[in-house]
């Protein structure tokens, strides 16, 4: 555990809580892609199956359980409790275009051809692209509420901090997880354009972020 990893995990947690609280307090999930949230729930579900097989640390177990619970709570709020506010008309990203290549790749490129390892690899690759329905939705509607952009900012920050964590671990521990690092870098690149808009429009302006 290093400071980048810890800060990355905290950013990830903050992002998820921001989104959950936004939906809970406003009793609305307008502008939120339910598809992205289902994909994230799928990411956690397939990655954390090792909760049943290996014990890493108390921190590890607690965080995994929290991420799983919060991601399912978010999906529940969007599709059940506040489904009247769900903007399905604009949440039209074709998820199968992500799932098919990701499933294919996880069978081709993995550390071991075992069910748990393939599912772990699937979750890593899927996480890299899971935000795309949300970004697509923002592009389609041309705007995002500021709370939604704060959520995306903390998600992107989490990715950036994980890269710093990998640089640190590579130098200090000789640790290098090629699958996680490559897809993590790809994932972070997706946020760069958003980061630029966030700084130039949300932080300097106020309220909603609208696209040019």
């Amino acid at each position: 555990m290093n400071i980048f990893r810890l800060a990355g995990d905290v950013s990830h947690l903050v992002a998820i809580i921001i989104l959950l609280l936004k939906i809970w307090r406003s009793k609305s999930c307008a502008g939120i892609s339910g598809k992205s949230q289902v994909l994230f729930a799928l990411v956690f579900s397939t990655r954390y199956l090792d909760l049943f097989t290996v014990f890493v640390s108390v921190y590890n177990v607690v965080m995994k359980v929290v991420f799983l619970a919060l991601s399912y709570a978010t999906v529940y709020l969007i599709y059940m409790r506040f489904r009247n506010s769900y903007d399905s008309e604009n949440d039209t990203f074709r998820v199968e275009f992500l799932l098919v290549p990701v499933i294919g790749l996880s069978f081709l490129e993995n550390y071991a051809f075992t069910p748990l390892e393939i599912l772990w690899t699937f979750s890593i690759f899927l996480e890299a692209v899971a935000i795309m329905p949300q970004l697509f939705m923002i592009t389609k509607t041309g705007e995002a509420e500021s709370i939604t952009t704060h959520y995306l900012f903390f998600l992107g920050l989490y990715r950036a901090l994980y890269i710093a964590n990998w640089v640190w671990r590579y130098h200090m521990e000789g640790f290098f997880d090629q699958i996680a690092v490559v897809s993590g870098v790809v994932q972070t690149i997706f946020y760069c354009d958003f980061f630029y808009l966030y700084v130039t429009r949300v932080l300097r302006g106020k309220g909603k972020m609208s696209l040019p």
Binding site: D50, V56, M63, E117, W120, G174, Q178
Partner: peptide, 10 residues
């Protein structure tokens, strides 16, 4: 290197 089936990151 990477030890299979021991992913310590979240």
């Amino acid at each position: 290197g990477m030890k299979v089936e021991e992913h310590d990151e979240l």
